[in-house]
Design a binder for these strands. Structure first.
Lengths: 237, 237
DNA sequence: GGTACGGTTAATACGTTGTTAATAATGCGT
DNA sequence: ACGCATTATTAACAACGTATTAACCGTACC
């Protein structure tokens, strides 16, 4: 993960802007994958996300906008830095973008130098990635979660159970943040899009169900951190 | 540690600019300590740094410049976010400022809204959870504090204990000001946002608990400075 | 129109946290 | 050495957060 050879995902529909920006970024030493629209970006995200060190997302895109892309990215990778490229005027958008993660934004028009500096800061900040792809996100102790099929298999007994979409999403999110604290608010924002009292109760119900589903492996434990959130304890390996 | 009551150190020599900026920042809800020159800033840094949640440093200052101040700040606190206020032209300065830490900059002239957004991002990043993992595991003698996980490990025995949020915040604050005197009032302001008799008693209870948690390493000592505050004695290394 | 399903709300029991209180110990000035 | 203020420690408590089960309700599909 050498800083100067970092690989960027750059989503921008303005052809002439993207051309010059990309050129300069590459000249500076970055490897750049450019997507001219939301759909090609979705492809890159779902199949290639692990390649990237940083994502640059234009907000205003035809079809799928930058925030939606950001959500998809976050669903797959909690930590990869996202830099939004916003128009000067969009104050609410900026806020929204900043709030959903630890992400940053830069207003257009920006100088490429400024962009590069911002990227460098982000890469530096992320240079030590917290326990990421060292583990197989699908393997949970004795269990295996197949996200696409929404299936949870208990390997020793060869039993399988089909999860609902929400159950699968929640378990996946927990799995990706195993052995860390995941805040209630973040879970709610990511899965439900908002955070109110009743959704909090809903979340508790789902947690309760997942605990029941996972109880054959005693080392697995969805631990509550009072007033903060949950920590999904999964043994290493 | 409440975001909207965050305490800012604001170093800026331009009188009229600082007046209006300070006013707006306070109106927004921040508490602002303004230093009009490098020397008063040095005072604040050496005696009062623990009070602050974020530092805004003008680069161009008479006497001691912003980068020197930043170095002094970093010598005392590895983590506190520093935001440099730079003139439009200074490209090298920006670079220098950004490189020395995980810090950020904003170019003058800036809108106060933009400044506030940038501060908010920083504060969020520095709150307990999404803290920069780079420094995260803090060594306290035989113990290790993982702030993100609110875990305190005793390395020799491999025992771990999960701290409450307050416990973790307090231990973190003590840890950041190890071997210095930390005033009661500062602790109370930072963790509780206000300072009254009863919160003082609460603090004593927490101190008492932390002492118990740390008693396996006799070199660690939360020492009381009568009538002043506490000094967390941690052996070097 | 019934029924199966997923998700939300409700009801209720339970656990944890931070604060307060009670009490003992310590420090400090006179 | 005495008295007052500050701090230490432990226990008790109320407020709030969480767990679990069951009831509810809309929707989709026969």
């Amino acid at each position: 993960m050498n800083t100067t050879s970092a690989h960027l995902l750059y989503v921008e529909d303005d052809e002439s802007l993207s051309f010059v920006t990309r050129d300069q970024l590459e000249h500076y030493g970055f490897t750049v994958t450019h997507c001219p629209d939301g759909h090609s970006a979705e492809d890159a995200i779902s199949n290639q996300l692990a390649r990237f060190d940083c994502c640059l997302l234009d907000i205003m895109l035809p079809g799928v906008d930058g925030f939606e892309l950001a959500q998809q990215i976050r669903a797959k990778d909690e930590h990869i830095p996202i830099l939004f490229l916003t128009a000067k005027s969009m104050k609410e958008d900026r806020l929204k973008g900043l709030r959903t993660g630890g992400d940053d934004y830069i207003t257009k028009p920006f100088s490429v130098e400024e962009l590069i500096l911002r990227i460098e800061v982000f890469l530096k900040r992320n240079r030590i990635r917290p326990a990421t792809p060292a583990f197989d996100p699908q393997l949970l102790g004795q269990y295996q979660l197949k996200l696409e099929e929404q299936m949870l298999h208990h390997l020793p007994s060869e039993e399988g159970r089909r999860l609902t979409q929400r159950e699968a999403e929640l378990l996946h999110l927990l799995s990706q943040n195993r052995n860390q604290i995941l805040e209630r608010g973040i879970i709610l924002e990511r899965l439900w899009g908002k955070n109110d009292y009743f959704l909090g109760r809903s979340l508790d119900v789902f947690i309760s169900r997942l605990r029941k589903y996972l109880q054959k492996d005693e080392r697995l434990n969805i631990e509550n951190i009072h007033g903060v959130g949950f920590s999904f304890q999964v043994p290493e390996g």
